[in-house]
Design a protein around this nucleic acid. Structure first.
Lengths: 224, 224
DNA sequence: AATGTAACTGGACCTCGGTCCGGTTAAGGT
DNA sequence: ACCTTAACCGGACCGAGGTCCAGTTACATT
């Protein structure tokens, strides 16, 4: 099936010919050497940048870290950061890439109930819970990595999740408008919402989890 | 009931003592003279700014208008803009304020099916459709006015809508977690989503409308 | 080893949202 | 009419994201 594949590839050569959001950029999941032959110094700088970014964020929080600071901490120029990661969102996304890949592998090819083998409804339930807790773990990073609203829905990592939900819904509700019905489900898992509900409204995660299960139950009820 | 009231009041005196998002700032809907005795020159500049902003946005699109340009077009300094509207989001929100107030008045005290009098489910249906089309009308402005993701859910205009949905849900589903269940419904009406579905996916508004009605039907089904 | 070149580098530079503060002015009391 | 003062004004200033391009460097080819 391999419809998915999060964005993690580095930027094309330059000068940005990229519309990496239009050209689907679907890598298969398990295989890719997803560093398309990066020059040695470039690869080294990439690693340094990621490491520096992770460290600074751990120290000062995701919001209080400037691109220039990351560049300085990695011992490279600011231009290098942007060449490699495109923009701030790209850098932060790259930091989340590992956990994103793992999540994807889990629900795409892992053991049930997340992976194939369990009934679709059950997979959907497990999927939401997994995403919910993953978001909660790295909330700050997810928040800071959120692209501007206009591109949110085109972002590869959103699309992969949305596609998965759509596919599951198709199996559960053959007659519905899955593409559309998947949206509110996805929205419930939005890190920004999780942030608001837990930190500003003070809800415990258990309530969000209950809410997700309830929502899935309501949406996927077939009788009438 | 008067739980709502969009933000439109000008900023407090200065130096910004404002946490207008924490202190609920709930004005009652129909009454307020919502300009709390603005000095003559200030009021004049406020009007000029709104007019200039509207004109520039009509000419160059909401995204291509800088705050400085608005200030210049209005014949005032940049500081004045920020003093009056707080930030970019505030200015754009003020431009949307009229239609926001009207919408609010409609679903709060207008004729059925939007206003009180119709059965709650029917009101909810009408509400979504109304919000959907309102978003579609001024998409660019809504998009540009969107606050940063962190504050999106705290923003008065969001809260008013969310509260209304919650109240309707409470009438329809006495036993459910309305507060939570309202979120995915609200998310379906998010201007950013409407933008993506219509402009990038090319869906017609009719499909979105169908989608909303379907979603409401699923979520509010009461039988087991 | 020499060479050609595509890719990479770094930091000066630009833009734009947002802040600051010394000077100005409208409004109310006398 | 005048004074006081709180509110307002404007534009210099700042920080941070993002761009540009002249110089440098890794790799392939011969």
């Amino acid at each position: 099936m391999l419809y998915a594949g999060f964005m993690s590839a580095d930027l094309p050569p330059f000068p940005k010919p990229q519309e990496p959001l239009d050209t689907p950029q679907l890598l298969e999941v398990g295989s890719a050497p997803d560093e398309p032959c990066l020059r040695a110094d470039a690869a080294r700088n990439r690693a340094r940048l990621l490491e520096a970014a992770a460290r600074l964020i751990a120290e000062h929080g995701a919001a209080g870290v400037t691109m220039e600071a990351v560049a300085a901490a990695a011992g490279v120029g600011k231009g290098t950061v942007f060449r490699r990661f495109g923009d701030r969102t790209g850098l932060l996304t790259a930091l989340l890439d590992h956990s994103a890949k793992k999540l994807q592998a889990d629900f795409l090819g892992g053991p049930p109930p997340l992976g194939p083998g369990a009934p679709p409804v059950e997979r959907l339930r497990a999927f939401g819970v997994a995403v919910l807790y993953r978001s909660a773990e790295q909330l700050d990073l997810h928040l800071a990595a959120q692209p501007e609203p206009t591109r949110r829905f085109s972002h590869p990592s959103y699309r992969a999740l949305h596609t998965h939900v759509t596919v599951l819904l198709r199996q559960i509700l053959p007659g519905a408008d899955h593409e559309l019905l998947a949206r509110p489900l996805m929205a419930f898992l939005d890190p920004a919402l999780v942030n608001h509900l837990t930190r500003q409204c003070g809800m415990p995660m258990e309530r969000l989890e209950k809410g997700w299960l309830d929502l899935v139950a309501r949406v996927t009820r077939t009788e009438v």
